[in-house]
Design a protein around this nucleic acid. Structure first.
Lengths: 293, 293
DNA sequence: TGAAGTTACGCGCGCCGTAATAATG
DNA sequence: CATTATTACGGCGCGCGTAACTTCA
C-alpha cells in the first residue's frame, strides 16, 4: 500500500489505460503494470479489469479510499512545508461557482485597498478542487457552498486540521425553464419532483446525490451531466430543458430565461463557508475579517 | 512522506526515544535515526527535538496528520482484504465504556440464541481504539458514545466509508462526590462549573476538550487524568475529590458514593452509536437488527 | 495484425544493519 | 562515563527501464 502504487492505481482507473497512466506519471507501461501487480499481490485481489481497463469491485472500493488518502498525504506535506515557506505578498482565493458574490468582491476590494502591494488571485474551481487547493496550500482561502440544515455546518469531507467560517445562508430554489408546467408555483417540495429529469452538475448546482439524500428517495432521474464551473452555462442548459437544478435562490434568480422557485421542503438552506489552513497570512486574516464584518 | 517514515516518526514521538521506537518497530536505532533524518530532509524542517526527544512545532503539526493518515491506510487495507476473507462464524464487538447496556446485552443474547455456533467477543476499549478496531476490521461492530446536540450525529473523526446507527440518546449529568457543595442542586449549567477541577478521563467520561468546546470557555481546570476504561475507577476518583466528570445520566447514577446532577445547559445529550464497516456478516446484521428493534 | 498489457532480466539506487564516532546528562 | 543519537560504509533487495513475449479487439 505504498502511496506510489496507490497513485498509479488511481491514474490507471482515471485514464482507463495502463499506457496513458504511465505517460501521465512519467513511468513506463511496464512499471505501471508492475505497480498494479504489486498492489494486487499485496491485497490478494484483482483490482483492475483489463481490456477494457476498469476497476473490479474491490478496485472500486479501493478508489474510495485512495483519492482521499493521497489528498490528505499531500495536505500534510503542504501544511508542514507551509509553516516555513510563507510568501506574505500573495493572496490566492479558490472559489466554488456562485460564491463570488458582491459581498465577497467588496471585501476583497477593501483588502486590496488596504494592502496595495498584494498580488491577488481569484480562481473558480469545482468544489473538490477548491478543497484540494486549500489543503495543498495552492490557495490561501477557499469558498465553498452546499446545502445543510439551517445553521448547521456544511457536510464537508474530512479536511484534516482546517478552519471553517460560515459566511452566508439563504434559501434554495429549483431552477426551471420558462414555461415549465411548475414555473408558476410559489414554492416546491423536492420529494414531489423526484420524477422530473435533473441535470447532474455537481460543481455548479447541488449534486444529485445530495438531493437524493435530502429527499430520501432514489428518484431524481439524471438528464444531462454538466461538468463546467460556469453558472451561465448551467442556466442555458436548464432553459433548454435538459433538466432541472437546485441552487441558491440568489444565484438562480440572476440566470436568464429561467424561473427560480423556492424550495419549501425539506427545510434546507444554501450555505457558504470560508475554508482556510490554520496557519494564515496577514492578507488572509484581513480578508476573513472583511468577510466576517 | 513514505508511510514507513511516518510510522517511525509517530513511534519516536510516542516513546520519546529513538532506541525505544527502534525496538518497538523491530529496527535498529540507526535505521530510526535515518528515517527521521529522511523525513526532516524531505520536509525541510526539523521535526524532532533530541535529548530530550520530543516534537518540534512542525513535528507536533505533523503528528496531527500522521496518526489519522496511518489509520486510514490500515483501514483501506482492511476494507479491501475484508471483502474476501470473511469469517462468518465470528462476531467481535468493540465497546466504549458505558455502552455495554442491558439493552445491548439483551440484543446480543438474542443473537447468540438464534445462532448457536457463533463465537462472540465483547471488548471494552477507549473511544479511539474502538474506532480503530472497526476501521481495521478487528471488530465487526463498534459502540461509541459522546455528546452531541439532540438528534445530531456524533462528531466522529473521519471514518472513511463506514456506517453509523443511532442507538440511544439520554441526558447528561455531572458526577460529584457525596457532600460536594453543589451536590444538592436539581440541575447544573456547565459554564457555571468552569472554575471547578475536572478529571481528564477521555475514555470513560466526556473529554475535557469537548466540554470546553461545548461551554465555549477555556476553563475546566484539569485535576487528575484517568486513562483507564473502567467506569468504577472513575467513580472512585470522583468520590475521592480528584475532580468532576460529565457522563451519561444513566451511567452516572449507578456509581456509588457519588451524586449525578443533570446538566441543564448547554442543551446537549449523551448519544450512543453503532459503527460498522459497510460490508457486514450475517451475525453483525442480526445484532444490528436486534439493537435497532 | 497491431495496440496494449505481461514477463524476463539486469542495472542502480536506496534501505537497513554493523560498527565506529560524537554528543549530552 | 554511560546512554543515546549520528555518521560511515557495505551488502542486499527491489523498483525501474529495456526488450521480448503474449493476448485480445
Amino acid at each position: 500500500m505504498d502511496p506510489h502504487l496507490l497513485r498509479t492505481f488511481v491514474a490507471v482507473i482515471d485514464h482507463r489505460s495502463f499506457s496513458a497512466a504511465a505517460q501521465a506519471l512519467g513511468y513506463t507501461q511496464s512499471a505501471v503494470s508492475q505497480h498494479i501487480a504489486a498492489l494486487e499481490a499485496d491485497l490478494g485481489t484483482r483490482l483492475v479489469e483489463r481490456r477494457p481497463v476498469g476497476p473490479t469491485e474491490s478496485g472500486g472500493r479501493l478508489m474510495e479510499h485512495a483519492r482521499p488518502l493521497l489528498l490528505r498525504l499531500d495536505a500534510a506535506r503542504a501544511d508542514i512545508v507551509g509553516l516555513h515557506g510563507i510568501r506574505p505578498g500573495r493572496l490566492a482565493v479558490a472559489c466554488a461557482p456562485g460564491t463570488v458574490t458582491p459581498a465577497f468582491a467588496g471585501a476583497l476590494a477593501r483588502v486590496r485597498r488596504a494592502e496595495p502591494g498584494l498580488s491577488t488571485t481569484v480562481q473558480v474551481l469545482g468544489r473538490d478542487a477548491v478543497l484540494r487547493a486549500v489543503m495543498t496550500g495552492e490557495a490561501d482561502l477557499g469558498l465553498v457552498d452546499g446545502i445543510a440544515a439551517p445553521s448547521d455546518p456544511l457536510p464537508l469531507p474530512d479536511t484534516g486540521p482546517m478552519t471553517t467560517l460560515a459566511l452566508a445562508e439563504g434559501p434554495l430554489a429549483v431552477l426551471l425553464p420558462l414555461g415549465h408546467p411548475l414555473a408558476g408555483r410559489r414554492a416546491l417540495r423536492l420529494p414531489d419532483l423526484a420524477d422530473a429529469h435533473w441535470l447532474d452538475a455537481p460543481d455548479t448546482a447541488v449534486p444529485l446525490s445530495q438531493l437524493r439524500a435530502a429527499a430520501q428517495t432514489d428518484g431524481f432521474r439524471r438528464g444531462a451531466s454538466y461538468a463546467g464551473t460556469d453558472l451561465a452555462g448551467l442556466g442555458t442548459l436548464v432553459a433548454s430543458g435538459h433538466g432541472l437544478a437546485v441552487l441558491a435562490s440568489a444565484t438562480a434568480a440572476a440566470l436568464p430565461d429561467t424561473i427560480a422557485v423556492p424550495v419549501s421542503a425539506p427545510r434546507l438552506v444554501h450555505r457558504t463557508e470560508a475554508l482556510h489552513p490554520r496557519r494564515t497570512t496577514t492578507a488572509t486574516r484581513s480578508l476573513l475579517a472583511a468577510l466576517g464584518g
